[in-house]
Amino acid sequence: MKITIQSPGEKTIKIAIPTRMLFNGLTAKLGFASIRKYVSTEELNLSSADLKRLVKEIRKTKNKYPHLELVNVESSDGSKIIIKL
């Protein structure tokens, strides 16, 4: 996954994180623990198995659509944030 942050007049920041490192069983567990801590089950009823399934699907997506631009935000002042898988 690549995150690019561009601001006019400032250096472009590029962060590359291996997708496997970001989305794996361990991060799914950690993510689940964080969600449980900050979000009530009424707001989001997510199980650990659901999160694992999501992680698996994200990895599948990465293989199917390498470098897919997930999010592209352009603000009126010229700042840009791009998140690529």
């Binding site: 999501l54 699907e57 994200i58 599948k60 997506t61 199917k64 659509y65 897919l68 631009e69 997930l70 999010v71 592209n72 935000v73 352009e74 603000s75 009126s76």
Partner: peptide, 11 residues
């Protein structure tokens, strides 16, 4: 401001 989100339907 412009926001573009591309998500595979499976996700």
């Amino acid at each position: 401001d412009k926001v573009r989100v591309n998500l595979p339907m499976a996700l």
